[in-house]
Design a protein around this nucleic acid. Structure first.
Lengths: 211, 211
DNA sequence: GGGCGCATCGCCCGTTCGGGCGATTGCCTT
DNA sequence: AAGGCAATCGCCCGAACGGGCGATGCGCCC
């Protein structure tokens, strides 16, 4: 079996194919061993508690409790947890959020075996690992002006086809205030109208399908 | 090595982890053998020609030539090609398009090993394989009113923040015609305004980020 | 303490949007 | 040949939108 000095890994991904792929890749390295797998955030928390892995390898996007929530919950329960996040899509709001939420690293699923193993070792050693390409993206994202919580709510109203008045009612504020928010949103998102703003919302991960 | 009666498989996916996962899963079955892998549509065509696989296992979403285009090209070059499409996201316009484009089956990456192997055998035998859940979705999608090509173009104009007049200019038609298209789009997408229409566009896969 | 961002509220006004009535020309399928 | 659908064009109009000028209070950070 695994040597006592092995880095113990917990895999979290809702796609069994990906889990098996990761397990296959990692099993090739003698210093690594997959001690548990989970299909969603809730299971991940359980398995983490029961199996105490050294490193968690987790997908960002999952049904139920998403990867980000799971990450936060994990960090809250065990601040020392070393978590390496995996993602399918490169352009993503989530990258930044994950880093802020305490991820030790961030990888795309297109990584080579080598890079993956290197990242795991690095993270296990207490370091962090973010690919260069993503780091550059991060710098761009950081420069982007963030929408406030309220503005997100207004943007969500727009996406549902509500008029300014409707949004005002649903948020219990005046229509004029909504217009002020809309104006701010259009500026921050550099959009000409609400339709483009909604599109930008989807592109930047502020809005997403199925929510 | 593989037995002569093995089903020869070509894997196509831009994520190496997924390719390795599939390879690992399939290698467990004696009747299956992965004879080639490709990272994108163009490579897939090459490999198909050179290795003549019995079944192609291909991701829908890929950089460069997408999976759907690759599927069409493949079917055009070799009408008898048996192609099983893989997808990450369940709710997707692509499912229907893939079937129409001649895919023999459609699977989510969350499939179990068993189901995957069953699907491959079924497809190799000349049958088709679509999971029940997806089939139900298909029925829904079929009922949904389709946007015409022109309407998609207009919707794309909306998503870019163009006014009716701007769209008219960019398509070299009259503003009134654009309004007619917009009206039709709002009806078909059951949207109150263009902002909601754009949102529905993203939700239904008519629009997507990064295009 | 002063600045900055956020959330809230006010009015005016021109432009755009979306709905309601039309219409004709093609193409494809039945 | 008939019917349906897509694409094109027409006018009227009320309501919504987005921009421009404001304003006040609150909390946070330097």
């Amino acid at each position: 079996m695994a040597q006592p000095s092995c880095i113990r890994i917990l895999l979290v991904d809702d796609h069994s194919v990906v889990r098996m792929g990761l397990a296959a890749v990692l099993s090739l390295d003698e210093g690594l061993t997959v001690v548990a797998e989970a299909e969603d955030g809730a299971q991940a928390l359980e398995k983490f508690r029961s199996d105490k892995p050294d490193v968690v390898l987790m997908d960002v996007r999952m049904p139920g409790m998403g990867g980000l929530e799971a990450l936060r919950a994990l960090r809250a329960a065990a601040p020392g947890a070393r978590v390496l996040m995996l993602t399918t899509s490169e352009l993503d709001e989530d990258v930044q959020r994950a880093i802020e939420a305490g991820a030790a690293g961030y990888l795309q699923k297109s990584v080579t075996r080598d890079e993956l193993v290197r990242a795991i070792r690095r993270v296990h050693a207490g370091g962090s690992y973010v690919p260069e390409a993503l780091e550059r993206r991060l710098a761009q994202l950081a420069k982007r002006r963030h929408l406030s919580h309220r503005e997100i709510e207004v943007l969500d109203g727009m996406r549902r086809g509500l008029s300014n008045r409707d949004i005002a009612v649903s948020l219990s504020i005046s229509e004029h205030t909504v217009k002020a928010h809309v104006k701010a949103i259009l500026q921050k998102l550099e959009s000409a109208d609400r339709a483009e703003a909604v599109a930008r919302g989807f592109e930047q991960g502020l809005l997403r399908v199925g929510e």
